[in-house]
Amino acid sequence: MPDQINADTESMSAYSSKLTAPEMPPSLARLGTPPNLTGLFEGIAMSVLDKAATASMAAFMAKMTEEMVTDSTKVKTAAITYSAADVTSALELATSATKVLKQGIDLVKQTAGSGQQPSTPTEKPADPSAGGAPQDLV
Rank of each mutant, 00 (worst) to 15 (best):
D50Q: 04
M12T: 03
K102Q: 15
E123F: 10
L28W: 06
A29R: 13
E67S: 06
D106A: 06
E123V: 15
A97V: 08
N36T: 04
A59T: 05
K102F: 11
P121Y: 15
K51I: 02
M68R: 03
V69Y: 02
M57Y: 14
S119M: 06
G43M: 04
G104D: 14
P121F: 15
Q117F: 15
P35Y: 01
E123D: 12
S13G: 13
T88C: 02
E23A: 09
K18S: 15
L37A: 11
T70S: 12
A52I: 13
A90D: 10
V100A: 13
T98L: 13
T33M: 00
T54I: 04
V108I: 06
K63R: 09
E123A: 15
G39S: 00
T111A: 11
T111D: 05
A45P: 00
T33Q: 04
N36M: 06
S11Y: 13
S13M: 14
V69L: 05
A78T: 11
A62C: 00
Q103M: 03
M64L: 09
K51T: 00
K99N: 13
L101I: 07
A97Y: 03
G43D: 02
A112N: 11
A84P: 07
A58G: 01
Q117K: 14
T65F: 08
L40A: 14
D71A: 14
N36K: 02
T73P: 05
V48L: 00
V75H: 00
P22C: 02
T120N: 13
S83A: 10
T65Y: 04
S114C: 05
A79D: 09
T33L: 01
T122S: 11
L28A: 08
V100R: 10
I105N: 09
E67Q: 08
A53F: 01
D86P: 00
P118E: 07
